[in-house]
């Protein structure tokens, strides 16, 4: 071909392109190195938790860790795109059921892998069917998804004649369990961070702002959305697989409880969905508060969760991150105003 001198006519293959993209995002800036270091220190300190406490505090720590992972992976897709997924429980339940159904047949690590693959495949199917069209359809689809999978699983158990409850007995101490979840959550964080600074992450932000512009910028929007949805859902499925042994008894109504989807959304919103650390800021206070509320008012949890949700949507729509950033902006604004006033005064004296 003689026109190889113009731009873009010699396109590298998709694989080579992906490798190039990988290499160009491997260069870290100074701030990024610093943030990674801080992140590593916090994680290391958090990992010491089981050495100091057991029982109640450790189980609270476990809840925080798992929700941090779930909320961060939810935000990975729903944050930049504004496509609100209400289906976390569906994928979480799939992971859990994979482990529950196969625990007597296959080794546990293999089951986690299978759970991840099952979650990814299911997400791919749903993504391909719903994400090519407008966002509302996706939200609606995700709304009843957990209930749908629950019905199908119950039916399957009914047809095969197995009992609806399954026991998952894997020998793990609480500490090992905690560290396992911590590793999971760290992986979610690193992947989210890496995607957030990659082309794909930027593409997703463009899509969230204006899908028409995104298309005309050359972004294959369907592929970007489906990819991210698959990654996010796979994490939810892995989380379910990891949590299954802790519950030890799994049944459809528990595994596919819509409550979980709801909690993940509310925690992410409370923290703020436009920063990587946003969900974490929401997860910690909410989990602790929720522990308190569900102990104090066990029969009113649904009602109170709904109230908390409305309060967040109406009064802190941009989450804690929004509040913090507003505050620091206002503070720097005040400083700037004071400084210019000061200078104006100084100028007046001369």
């Amino acid at each position: 071909m003689s026109n190889a001198d113009t731009h873009g006519d010699t396109k590298p293959t998709a694989f080579a392109q992906a490798m190039l993209d990988l290499r160009e995002s491997a260069v870290l800036s100074g701030t990024e190195k610093r943030n990674l270091a801080i992140c590593a220190i916090v994680a290391a300190l958090w990992a010491l938790l089981p050495l100091f406490s057991t029982g109640y505090i450790l189980s609270l720590g476990i809840s925080i860790t798992i929700f941090a992972g779930l909320a961060t992976s939810w935000t990975l897709f729903s944050g930049p795109t504004n496509y609100i997924s209400l289906a976390t429980a569906a994928f979480f339940g799939i992971g859990m059921y994979t482990v529950a159904g196969g625990v007597n047949l296959l080794p546990y690590p293999v089951l986690i892998l299978i759970a991840a693959v099952a979650g990814a495949l299911f997400a791919a199917l749903i993504g391909l069917a719903t994400l090519r069209i407008s966002g509302v359809y996706f939200v609606i689809f995700s709304l009843g998804l957990a209930e749908l999978v629950r019905q199908v699983v119950s039916w399957g158990q009914h047809v095969m004649g197995t009992s609806s409850g399954l026991y998952v007995l894997v020998d793990r101490s609480d500490s090992v369990f905690f560290w396992q979840l911590l590793v999971f959550t760290l992986v979610v964080f690193l992947v989210s961070w890496w995607i957030g600074r990659s082309r794909l992450g930027f593409a997703l932000r463009i899509i969230g702002n204006d899908e028409v512009v995104a298309v005309h910028c050359g972004i294959n929007t369907a592929r970007a959305k489906v990819t991210l949805f698959i990654i996010s859902s796979t994490f939810a499925a892995i989380a379910g697989a990891l949590v299954a042994p802790r519950w030890s008894y799994v049944e459809p109504t528990l595994a596919f409880s819509p409550f979980l989807s709801f909690q993940v959304v509310i925690m992410s919103l409370l923290g703020g969905v436009h920063r990587l650390w946003g969900p974490l800021v929401g997860v910690i206070p909410f989990t602790i508060m929720w522990e308190f509320i569900s102990a104090k008012f066990p029969s009113q949890t649904t009602l109170l969760l709904g109230v908390a949700f409305l309060l967040i949507v109406y009064f802190i729509p941009h989450g804690f991150v929004g509040l913090i950033e507003d505050f620091s902006r206002r503070r720097s604004g005040i400083w700037a105003a004071l400084r210019s006033k000061w200078q104006a005064k100084g100028g007046g004296h001369e």
């Binding site: 609100i84 509302v136 709904g306 109230v307 949507v313």
Partner: peptide, 15 residues
């Protein structure tokens, strides 16, 4: 916003 608000509302109703 309305999806989120009515979703929260649905939980209040159920509760």
């Amino acid at each position: 916003d309305s999806i989120l608000a009515t979703f929260g509302l649905s939980f209040i109703f159920v509760g």
